[in-house]
């Protein structure tokens, strides 16, 4: 393999209260690649994403970020909180519910982790944050507080906040599912721009057209198992399994 994979997942399994949510899942994401994880609700796709930054701890298998294992240190013991925090800082995560911190202004939401986790000076962090807010079209709202923003604006700030840590990989957990339909476009637009700039991204989404347009690889999860993994054109036009065909008929109504 020419390059170390940005994310490498091997034989991952996870159960909640005896129900297996992920079964022996393996997946590689190359640097610069955009991977969409699709599947119906309950298929385990969000759990898979949340395992990547150890918000959920898998029962078996291992995950490497740019070659380094997350969650388990070299000695085989569980990582200390500090080590884990260091690994997580290399991953940017965008949540379905935005999860902005309401007591901080837009600008401070973005600079909070760079200043207090990475130790950047306030000036450096402000500069970096303003560039990112510019990129997501939220620079003029920098002094406002989250409760004044629309869902789409909140999500764009959340994207800038995640980017501010200069992560190796961006994780998107259904970033548009909590949005009113008319606000979905602005967020997808931002994510699309990022894909063009060469960011490595893993996204869980219900937006089929979008997944088709931005992805280099589409992964389909069903009951915790990857049953299809292919290029989007292949996936959408020529699905290999009946399960995916049925899913596509239900999810993507004829335009």
């Amino acid at each position: 393999m020419p390059e170390t994979a940005a994310v490498s997942i091997r034989n991952l399994s996870k159960s909640f209260d005896g129900t297996e949510v992920l079964r022996d899942v393996s997946l590689e994401v190359q640097p610069g690649e955009v991977v969409s994880i699709l599947g119906s609700s309950g298929s385990g796709k969000s759990t898979l994403l949340r395992c990547i930054n150890w918000l959920e701890q898998p029962d078996r298998g291992d995950i490497r970020i740019a070659g380094d294992r997350i969650g388990v240190s070299d000695s085989g013991k569980p990582m200390s909180r500090r080590e884990l925090a260091g690994m997580r800082a290399r991953l940017g995560m965008v949540f379905q519910g935005f999860n902005l911190w309401p007591h901080l202004s837009v600008l401070r939401n973005v600079t909070e982790a760079p200043i207090h986790v990475q130790g950047l000076s306030k000036t450096e962090a402000d500069e970096r944050a303003m560039a990112l807010l510019e990129k997501v079209g939220m620079a003029d709202k920098r002094e406002q507080y989250p409760y004044t923003l629309s869902g789409g604006q909140k999500q764009r700030v959340a994207i800038a906040r995640a980017l501010a840590m200069q992560p190796k990989v961006m994780l998107f957990d259904e970033p548009t599912s909590a949005l009113d339909p008319e606000l979905v476009g602005e967020v997808l637009g931002v994510i699309k721009d990022l894909s063009k700039e060469g960011y490595t991204m893993v996204l869980v989404t219900h937006e089929m057209e979008f997944a088709r347009a931005v992805s280099d690889q589409v992964v389909f999860l069903d009951k915790g198992i990857i049953i299809e993994k292919s290029h989007p054109s292949e996936f959408f036009e020529n699905p290999k399994t009946d399960r995916v065909r049925r899913f596509l008929e239900l999810e993507a109504p004829a335009v």
Partner: peptide, 10 residues
């Protein structure tokens, strides 16, 4: 969610 966002940011 807010707590998770902070954890995810390290």
């Amino acid at each position: 969610g807010q707590v998770e966002a902070a954890i995810a940011q390290g």
